[in-house]
Design a protein around this nucleic acid. Sequence first.
DNA 1: TTGTACGCGTTATCAA
DNA 2: TTGATAACGCGTACAA
Lengths: 348, 348
Amino acid sequence: MAATLNDVAEESKVSISTVSCVINGKDFPTRYSEETKQKVLEAAERLGYIPNRLARGLNLKRTGTIGVVFTNALGTFMNEIINGIQGVTHKQGFDLFLCISDDDWQKEASHIRMLRERKVDGMIVFMVACSKKDKISHEHILSVKDAGIPLVFVDRYLPGVDIDYVVADDFHGAYDAVNHLIKLGHRKIAHVTTDVDCTSNHNRLAGYTKALSDAGIPINNEYIKTTKYFGKEAGHEPTLELLAMKERPTAIFFISDGVAIDALEVIKRDGFMVPEDIAIVSFGNSRESAYLEVPLTAVDQPPTELGKRAGEIIIDKIENPDEKGCKQVSIKPTLVVRESCGASLKSR
Amino acid sequence: MAATLNDVAEESKVSISTVSCVINGKDFPTRYSEETKQKVLEAAERLGYIPNRLARGLNLKRTGTIGVVFTNALGTFMNEIINGIQGVTHKQGFDLFLCISDDDWQKEASHIRMLRERKVDGMIVFMVACSKKDKISHEHILSVKDAGIPLVFVDRYLPGVDIDYVVADDFHGAYDAVNHLIKLGHRKIAHVTTDVDCTSNHNRLAGYTKALSDAGIPINNEYIKTTKYFGKEAGHEPTLELLAMKERPTAIFFISDGVAIDALEVIKRDGFMVPEDIAIVSFGNSRESAYLEVPLTAVDQPPTELGKRAGEIIIDKIENPDEKGCKQVSIKPTLVVRESCGASLKSR
DNA sequence: TTGTACGCGTTATCAA
DNA sequence: TTGATAACGCGTACAA
């Protein structure tokens, strides 16, 4: 079958260990002469030699692999995160073992297990979302840390746990977005969130609340609506409820532009104008928001940057296993002002 | 560090081979007693034993891995293909090693090389697209076949080469779409394609041409426009050209719904109505087309089915390496009639 | 019913 | 400047 080091050694009539050194470019020129080098290289070429990474990994206790578990392959957000990771890891000679958990907790656990069996050097995990009802266990993730395998979270993390992460600064992102609305004169500002129990949502809600209270605006719980995350038209119902209120809000801060795009549909259908009748800002996970009929003003998370930082951290942890520090970075997103908030209206 | 079979053997005071058999559930009950089984299992549990797949693979010459190389992670199409693959492969105990080539020929080649080094049992490849100018080499792919590694293409393939594939039947899909327009009374039917040099495009063009000639409609080369594949607004220019013609077509068949969605923008901007002024059908790669302002009539490729078949074929080739047959399947897509073709108009 | 020993393809250590 | 050899962790043929 496939040629091995041994085959190359026989073909070139030198020892197997010399071949190994030549192939890996080691100890030249002390280890062997230019002549043998050429001889070996030619033999390898002739036989179509391809190194066996299983054997190498077994010996070296290092596979050059980073396991990446992410929820799904939908949209640009995830794609750019992965590009960001790959950009730095590839340069350092690591390959990415990509796994899609499909927002399924079981699949996530089984992928992580599989990656451990395959002895990846580290893992980057974009955890599944879960609704508030089903408390899911995080054993499978904690065990990775316990086993001493380098681990970094992206975009979502486990609060209060000593595991590295790279996330967007949801609190300040939300704060800025809502504050922007306040500066435009809005006081009746609603928030539509989802029933997903993750730090992002908590922090965005906190940012919303803080911005209001800093401006001396009382919190109206009627203005805070929760929708289910999984489902075609998550944004419809809460938006309709808000539009139907006597004290109708003049602005809505949406938890994500997916939900906001949903909402735009029913807002339009009900005959309201954006931003004239109702201003909208959202948290952006996608590039589409710029190309809508009414381009969305959104908190822009930098996915490539998230991925890049995660890649840097995981590599650092792999290369320096002794350093005990825990890197938890949150990247400040920027508010991108487009049409939907009405800022351009005012300035005219 | 991590516990090995040997550690478990010591802990449970039996030999390493007995442990191996227990772990893999082999030869019970002839190989060992219920008692030792429990003893071993407990020891494994206590030590948190996780099998080392590198060692196993090295020994067995089988890794339980299928390499999957695909162009990018955008959109539902790719995601559903992968789900389709995973659905069948997971059941058979295979893991997917996902790689994103990002429509970059170099990356594709290096991923394939990497997968060979890692001794995957087979590969499923969704080849990169390439524009007509840059002739790219397919050595890296052909060498996979030459090495006797099971290989299946999805969605795109190399014509005239003896490699298995699963694709949509582009010819008949296009034929049906254009024929549908003809039945609705159209005779001035244009086609917008891209400059990507792949079988899909050729076959769709061929289907278009055949449908016209079967209906006795002469081919008008002015009606066939080519746009560049890579770029934000691929559909704009050719559509504008068509709209500006003296003999303006009454219907357009687009190569993909991405291009069609682009086109819809400029059509609307120019004040034309769909389908009243101009009817539209496209080849669908995404679910979005159903949710547009004017839902698109489109040839619906079944991505999950494509993935499923590819998964079945690759597993079959892995399990039966001797069978020499070459499975080349093309799945007939169905035309999903929505608003943009005007069929609903006529029926009123 | 259980244990011994070999081989999978590499790399690293040491001796020549 | 080179070659022999011992790991790495596992499965299995064969011996006990």
